[in-house]
Write a protein that binds this DNA or RNA. Structure first.
Lengths: 231, 231
DNA sequence: ATTAAATAGTGAATACCATTAACCATGTGT
DNA sequence: ACACATGGTTAATGGTATTCACTATTTAAT
């Protein structure tokens, strides 16, 4: 009957988490906000952990949707624009949703992952898949120069193969390595921007971001697209 | 008289934080562990926030000491080894102290920084200074190829100058940019390793780390040192 | 040496929080 | 009409931070 209370509770939980931080996301506060007593929420969620998990799931879906939309807003043949816009969307979303970023990709992740089942791979697989399809296109166009299998350290190669299988990619591990190298830099920039270590100098992360994108696109044999459509 | 209780409380607080996470670091738990009632700790610390702050300060000192020792354990003239060992020490310490890493460089940082004064710059300045001295050596030896001032986007250039001033560096902003590029990659790898997003494939971060170091040393015109002494 | 004051603790009180258990409506299916 | 599942309630337990009033003890000053 009142499955709408579950929806209400989830949006309230999301709002509270965003405003107060995940540690401020409390069963009591949500109950107050939806006009019900705390124990009532135990019919819908598995206590506080369940609330956090619900927010996690919602946020994951929203994040992936946002990034995928940004990618698909570009010309399908303009891979440079697709990569650039997708990455930019990741940055923009993360800056606009710092608490949620921490939940998805920061310290929140191991905590959520530890409590419940079926978590650990979602973001990595979906996001890796989204960008992986772009790398696959590049690879089939023969634009990509990368290390040959035998030039990669065997232990690293095994890890790259595991990654490739789990995410469902279909190109040489040299290309997988390129992906990981790119992600490492993007992720570093994201964490710098979100956690704000260097905020004293790099309050606005965009200049560094654009410089990095030029770098990464160059690594992939691409140049900045003149037809970039950012939201 | 009993300034030793403050010391006791701090080491207990550090242990609890490391074992249970910062959210498990509670005034009551520390009080129990040092055999005193909770209000007693208010004579020494500013409540729970004060405890966290105390841990933060201790951990900062320990971290910097660990990294500095690793650097100074190398041949003073072998800058490659110094950079490599310092970076490796950062990785090792972070993996061995994940909770503390989050406090210093992750989501914990903005929270601690928001509460009290004089925080935000410590790590950035000291760590930046340590590595900055190595970059300065490289720069004076003329080994470094970097962008000229006028080839850097003006907004980015201004940010780099702010960074240089705050950290107290004395080389062109092109070299500062090199530092930031290196740090971005190291930091990305650290967060990947500590937060464990890609643990399903990259459980052991060392292969990626060593590959990255080769890359970064190459960027600085160096090669892997044959005389690397890791702890 | 006696006395005043600072130090370092306790206990009690307030106000949050999570979680469980027992209970009570209300509407649904038979 | 009756049994029952659904979705809420209140009450109870136990954990947390924090403040306040109080006390013992130590230190310092006259």
């Amino acid at each position: 009957m009142r499955a709408e209370l579950e929806r209400d509770a989830k949006v309230v939980a999301r709002r509270i988490a965003a405003e107060e931080g995940v540690e401020g996301l409390t069963v009591a506060a949500v109950a107050r906000s939806v006009g019900v007593t705390p124990p009532a929420l135990y019919r819908y969620f598995n206590g506080r952990a369940g609330l956090v998990r619900a927010v996690y799931d919602d946020v994951t879906a929203e994040f992936m949707d946002t990034v995928a939309r940004a990618v698909h807003r570009q010309d399908p043949d303009d891979i440079s624009a697709r990569l650039h816009a997708g990455t930019r969307a990741v940055l923009d979303w993360s800056l606009a949703n710092k608490v949620e970023f921490d939940l998805l990709m920061g310290a929140g992740f191991p905590k959520v992952a530890a409590s419940e089942e079926g978590i650990p791979i979602v973001i990595a697989r979906e996001l890796g898949g989204l960008f992986g399809r772009l790398f696959a296109q590049l690879w089939h166009e023969g634009q990509l120069t990368c290390l040959a299998d035998e030039d990669i350290d065997p232990v690293l190669a095994a890890q790259l193969r595991t990654y490739r299988t789990t995410v469902g990619l279909e190109f040489p591990i040299g290309v997988v390595l390129l992906m990981v190298i790119c992600w490492r830099q993007i992720y570093g920039l994201l964490c710098m921007a979100v956690y704000g270590h260097h905020k004293f100098a790099f309050e606005d992360p965009l200049p560094l971001f654009e410089h990095m994108m030029d770098d990464l696109l160059g690594l992939l044999g691409l140049t900045r697209s003149p037809n970039l459509h950012v939201a």
